[in-house]
Design a protein around this nucleic acid. Structure first.
Lengths: 143, 143
DNA sequence: TTTATAAATAGTAATATTCCTATTTATACA
DNA sequence: TGTATAAATAGGAATATTACTATTTATAAA
């Protein structure tokens, strides 16, 4: 039950489970590709006709912050996908030329970081890790 | 010679050394705090009166992409600082409530990642790593 | 130095993202 | 089940960021 797990997480961290948040997760769960905030907004209008863009952006930020979603920053804007136990947790290798994003299957957020965060008095909620580079095709073109 | 080192890097990676890029680096080098794109733009007008915001944003993205700058994404917008050999290379622990950003002194981009990137045919240029959480003060407030 | 060239820029239009505030709603608890 | 309360939302205004294109400029090579 992917989405319901995220809703649990929300609740456990002290956030309310609203119909808008449910809808955002449902839309992302139903698509097998990364979506922009606009796309999510458009797809939600069927079930949430009056949802505002502000709500989308605010919640995407929250969901990324607590690790339920993954944000990939492309020069043309940000795209989002489910993360964590829902889909296999991972990070991305992004081509700075063509914006192709390849998944990288392991994660740098080791216990070491949690400890360091704790030393600073922080309660860790999530993390982001992105690698930038040029893909094979774009490297060739440059030569 | 901090700034000149970055200019070398630019040249080595095949990018031109323009007066606008020099000015961006000089402004960041002169300040001891993180700056927004707007602030950089404002501070550059003394030496580059006609510089456009587009140029600032385009170059900040480039400089982050190739690892010369560091971008910290706050909910109120992005801020930038020098990175790499110029200042000591590091990452950040950001409070999602109050936006306080603490430096974390070590880096997850090990040789392992370079190898993985190489397998995918990518030439690595840089990376970003950010930890999100609640700082001590904001954690207290919530209880 | 002069020239050819692709890359970078300025200026402006178009989008994306965030801010603000009155109103609505999920949640805890009586 | 009602009610109180803080959190969340809608709607629109304000900013931030990116896109587009004609022009300028850094660079390499003659």
């Amino acid at each position: 039950m992917p989405v319901s797990g995220s809703l649990e997480t929300l609740k456990n961290k002290g956030y309310k489970v609203t119909s808008q948040r449910r809808a955002i997760l449902r839309v992302l769960d139903g698509e097998n590709r990364r979506l922009t905030a606009r796309e999510i907004h458009a797809m939600m209008r069927d079930i949430q006709p009056r949802v505002s863009l502000d709500t989308i952006y605010r919640n995407l930020r929250l969901l990324v912050g607590i690790g339920i979603l993954h944000q990939i920053s492309l020069s043309s804007g940000a795209v989002f996908e489910l993360n964590g136990d829902i889909r296999h947790h991972h990070h991305h290798l992004v081509c700075v030329e063509c914006e192709k994003a390849v998944c990288v299957s392991y994660c740098p957020a080791t216990r070491e970081y949690s400890e360091r965060a704790a030393e600073e008095g922080f309660t860790l909620l999530g993390h982001s890790f992105e690698l930038f580079g040029r893909c094979a095709d774009c490297s060739k073109k440059q030569n």
